[in-house]
Design a protein around this nucleic acid. Sequence first.
DNA 1: TTACAAGTTGGCAAAATTACCAAATACTTT
DNA 2: AAAGTATTTGGTAATTTTGCCAACTTGTAA
Lengths: 97, 97
Amino acid sequence: MNKDIENEFLEKAEVFKALSHPTRLFIIDAIKDKRMSVKELSEIVEIDISTMSKHLNILKNNKIIQGEKVKNFVYYRLAIPCVLEFMTCAVKTINKK
Amino acid sequence: MNKDIENEFLEKAEVFKALSHPTRLFIIDAIKDKRMSVKELSEIVEIDISTMSKHLNILKNNKIIQGEKVKNFVYYRLAIPCVLEFMTCAVKTINKK
DNA sequence: TTACAAGTTGGCAAAATTACCAAATACTTT
DNA sequence: AAAGTATTTGGTAATTTTGCCAACTTGTAA
């Protein structure tokens, strides 16, 4: 693959990849209004807390969310509100199917 | 994983997954103004034409692009212009890093 | 009809992703 | 200090994605 093209689009692709999992899209929807802890999120989605922690880490590494430690909880919130607009476009796409 | 949550977010995640590869983001950028054939795209990106065909198929299955056969060429163009706005948000995210 | 070019599909191996468990860390509370 | 709760990290197996080659299909042109 051409290196210039790869350099230009790889970082952007990483952001989309971070959003390409149902659990991570749920997270974004869930914390858009109020911050939530890892345990709260894992219990709602019904997955292992370690799995949830890793999903949150993927979003955090891409600066899509950010965490804040309070006591021994970590509360996460949206760092990039524009991701919500992504959703609107995704839904338009789905409605075409 | 909770089934209601999975049902609500799986389809949307598929759209993001379709966009989560540098070659596929390049395609979207390349055909945003003018339609292009599989061979043209594969030569620019420098990958096998069969690989390019598969990438195009992933985008087509998600209704992000659409193809039109002319002679023995297939020209692809954008079907959902709003994906370009996704890019703008992705870049904002990248600039934070 | 024969040869050629564009595109698609199937198969396979390498790489990446995902989810669980177990163990480690961080912080509280008794 | 000891026990308990929340979170993170390492390891591993199952699944998915990716890219090439080879073979096949479709349509063109000699």
